[in-house]
Write a protein that binds this DNA or RNA. Structure first.
Lengths: 337, 337
DNA sequence: CGATTCCATGGAATCGATTCCACAACGGTG
DNA sequence: CACCGTTGTGGAATCGATTCCATGGAATCG
């Protein structure tokens, strides 16, 4: 059951392995006769070159590594899809790793990918620079996506976190909300930190209630969104509007509102960070801070390709867009402007 | 910038490459002295073995290929997550390919994965056996998951499609529905075919209206769910209940109901195939045909491992479970039992 | 105490494709 | 007709890790 090698092809075609290789890779000069014979032999034998052997000799593997925190998060699923499709346009295969929001798994995957000698790496990193020694040592061209690591000399494609959050808070205060509950992301991620900082700044700017109890620290997973909603709604002076820092936490939080019979849009206003298709289902639909995920993935690949080619591309920040839907109506119950 | 090889380690440790390899792979006998020296040298140099070279010599790559139709479908995202986590327990790296519900991309990925000499393949296949020659030729241990290809000698882990659909139809007819609209999946997939067949059988069994117009053929993506809902709701005698064959089409269909001001659960009953977290958000929540996706992924990996070990594992069919929620209330408007 | 086993080790072969280098054949030019 | 450049080709080296085989020395046995 040994698979056929280039030598088998060469033998059958009556040429040397060198010539067979030249024909199949289409590079140097080869005679018409040789070309025909080799192509026929290869087709007949069902020859499939061993990528390992090829990558060993060449320097490149035509493979990029993609390290994401959680593929079940629709935002990252969309991102993975966009990256993978764009990469395949450049004949790159995507090696995908799911860190499961865990630093340990992130490091394990990083190690494996470097062992696999990926030509480049796209990552939405977690934690501190220290855990990413490999990348930082410049071992492999890298691009950060969505999240970044401070102080790392690595270009990134991110969303305008601050702008998005500021727009949302201004929108809510303009509707008359003064007590806005914020379900934040983990402070071990740049997005978690930036969004929380932006929230605090926007609260200060708009004069909304600056009450530490109105901020709950979640972990970007839906259970923590539910926990956050419970905690905030149980406050002596509960918020009249909720803002959650990602889609999964929004799902958890909306679930709690339903549980308690709080009608979104009527009894409480709600804004979610990230737009996912399912949010349009809710009735009323959720107001969201949306991004062009497709562009983010595409750009990440483009920057990586540039880096692999030896260039030093600049980081990109993509705009956020507030999409106002039914969950933040003009006249929230009991909250006149 | 050439990365360090085992020879560098050997030189620094004052031993031969052979001994260094033995120490690092921990196999044959080595002296305490050699072990220490090699480990130290490896650590100091930050040695990371080249996986290409290793796989070339050994037969295995410690890599499995995962070929899915669409990672943006939450069902497949969950499945990918489960498979990837289970595989990593066995020290297998998952090479992920997104066929994008396209046969051509499926074949392209199949080819690349075989070139990469994956040790095994888990696939949710599309189309006919003919397009999967490589797998069928027994080139690599393979397991089908969710979907199968008829006539292929490949074990599969699937859900009890027929049972799930039958339960749903019986549930709806028990509530008094006689006109049930069905948004089917593509007939190029086994799941699409089996579910549609089961729907027809259940209609016959329960005596519900057997009207060809009540079946719409979609493609498992949300736009087709929307198209299907429009088509069905525009019928002269529209259905009083809708059943959609996957979660994305359900999202599309529910969106159309919202658009038209049809209250789910009140004006129209709705059952979705596949349970996703977002469905619990709807108010009322959706009645669904649910599966243990985690078990499905886990089992697929376990079967594959067995196959790689030379065994011939049997296919597994996992049970479906009807979870009744608010979208199919006991007394649907205008449809007394 | 001589013979045999065992252990640790290094040299060399190996995996499969690519590529450097050398060489032969050929056509064209001075 | 000798010389040179071009073209097509094969042999051999190469990539990096593993593993077969041979060897020398230590340990064990009769």
């Amino acid at each position: 059951m040994r698979s056929t090698t280039i030598k088998d092809v060469a033998r059958k075609a009556g040429v040397s392995a060198a010539t067979a290789s030249r024909v199949l890779s289409g590079h140097s000069a080869t005679s018409e006769d040789a070309r025909q014979a080799v192509r026929e032999a290869a087709a007949e034998l069902g020859f499939r070159p061993n990528a390992q052997a090829r990558s060993l000799r060449k320097t490149s593997t035509q493979t990029i590594g993609l390290l994401l925190p959680d593929i079940r998060n629709p935002f990252f699923a969309d991102l993975a899809h966009a990256i993978e499709q764009r990469a395949s346009e450049f004949q790159y295969l995507t090696l995908f790793g799911n860190a499961n929001e865990s630093q340990e798994q992130q490091e394990r995957y990083l190690d494996v990918m470097l062992s696999q000698r990926v030509d480049g790496l796209i990552a939405a990193p977690q934690g501190e620079a220290s855990s990413l020694v490999g990348i930082l040592a410049g071992e492999v061209p890298t691009v950060f996506v969505d999240r970044v690591v401070d102080g790392a000399p690595v270009p990134g494609v991110t969303a305008d976190n601050a702008g998005g959050i500021a727009d949302a808070v201004r929108h809510l205060t303009a509707l008359g909300h003064r007590r806005i509950g914020y379900i934040a992301g983990p402070q071990s991620t740049s997005t978690g930190r930036e969004r929380l900082q932006a929230f605090r700044a926007a609260v200060a700017e708009t004069g909304a209630d600056d009450d530490g109890d109105l901020v709950f620290l979640g972990d970007f997973q839906s259970a923590s969104g539910a926990a956050g909603a419970r905690r905030l709604l149980d406050l002596p002076m509960p918020p009249t509007a909720l803002l959650a820092a990602d889609s999964l936490m929004s799902i958890g939080a909306v679930g709690v509102c339903n549980e308690r019979g709080l009608a979104i849009g009527t009894d409480i206003a709600f804004v979610a960070y990230d737009d996912i298709e399912a949010f349009t289902l809710l009735n009323p639909a959720l107001t969201v801070i949306a991004h062009d995920v497709h562009a983010m993935g595409r750009l990440a690949v483009d920057l990586l390709i540039a880096e692999i080619a030896g260039e030093s591309p600049e980081s990109v920040v993509l705009p956020s867009r507030l999409i106002i839907r039914g969950s933040t109506p003009s006249l929230p119950g009991g909250n006149p402007a």
